Simulated assay, not measured.
Amino acid sequence: MSAPGIVGRLDAIGLDELVGQAELLTRVDRKYVLTRAETDRVLAAVDPATRVLEIDGARGSTYGTMYFDTPDLLSYHLAAHGRRRRFKLRSRHYVDTDAAFLEMKTRGARGTTVKERIPHPADAVDTLTPEGRAYAAEAVAGLGLGAHVADELAPTLHTAYRRTTLLLPEGARATIDTELAWADAWGHRMQPDDLVIVETKSAAQASSLDRLLWRARIRPARISKFATGLAALRPDLPSHKWNRIIRTHFPRGASAALAA
């Protein structure tokens, strides 16, 4: 499903203008899991004043993300069991511009989430540089985790997808991720053909796209590209938080059929 086929009728907006109009929002993020047909039906009804991010004539960008975890999957297990202190470390590669960043997302004892990032070599997105490991060590130490955690972090799960970004008339933003693919460190691969992830980013009030989704009886879903993807590829892992999404949207046996 190509972005132009969905949003070709909308006016374009550049990156600087998009950031300028939407960056001051106190964000509430809502994620939705859809099929292609559902996505097309919902987006056909968006306000014509909606604009689509366009960079160098392209209305979509390719992302590649490598998640790092310990051999015993500490980051995954902290998320799966809903621990208040948890972290997620990833390198994100903006393929079209060949820029990359190392991003650390932490949640502390009071439930606050902090996401920070530093530049990362675009030709080394699958590895942790000494600078990157030191950056990770500082973050995990702040959570009260042992110093050995940062030393053990290794590439665990890679995701790839095509993202289209919308600016809604009320100033909220939305992203539409298609062509999703996962590959883990144990050789399993998965690329569900009919999976789309939509995320809205708005003020406390629901966005116009949220309301369109709700009218279509599509409700916010609990999904993480890292944790849900890894759980779908590794049925041996605890996954109760994401079981319904996996049963509904991830083909049974897909990871085994596509294993390297």
Rank of each mutant, 00 (worst) to 15 (best):
L74Y: 11
S75G: 13
H77W: 14
L78W: 07
A79M: 10
A79H: 15
A80G: 04
R84Q: 08
R84K: 13
R85I: 12
R86Y: 04
F87R: 00
K88I: 02
K88G: 06
L89P: 00
L89D: 04
R92Y: 09
R92W: 13
R92T: 07
D96Q: 00
D96A: 04
D96F: 04
D96E: 09
T97L: 15
T97D: 15
T97W: 12
D98N: 10
D98L: 05
D98T: 00
A99N: 12
F101Q: 14
F101R: 06
L102E: 10
L102N: 09
E103I: 00
E103T: 00
E103C: 05
M104F: 15
M104A: 15
K105A: 13
R107Y: 06
A109V: 12
R110I: 10
T112S: 12
T112L: 13
T112G: 11
T113E: 08
V114C: 03
K115R: 03
K115T: 00
E116P: 04
E116F: 10
R117Q: 11
H120I: 07
P121E: 11
P121V: 02
D123F: 05
D123W: 01
D123K: 01
A124G: 05
V125A: 12
D126Q: 07
L128H: 11
L128V: 07
L128F: 07
L128Y: 03
T129N: 10
T129H: 14
P130M: 05
P130H: 07
E131N: 06
E131S: 14
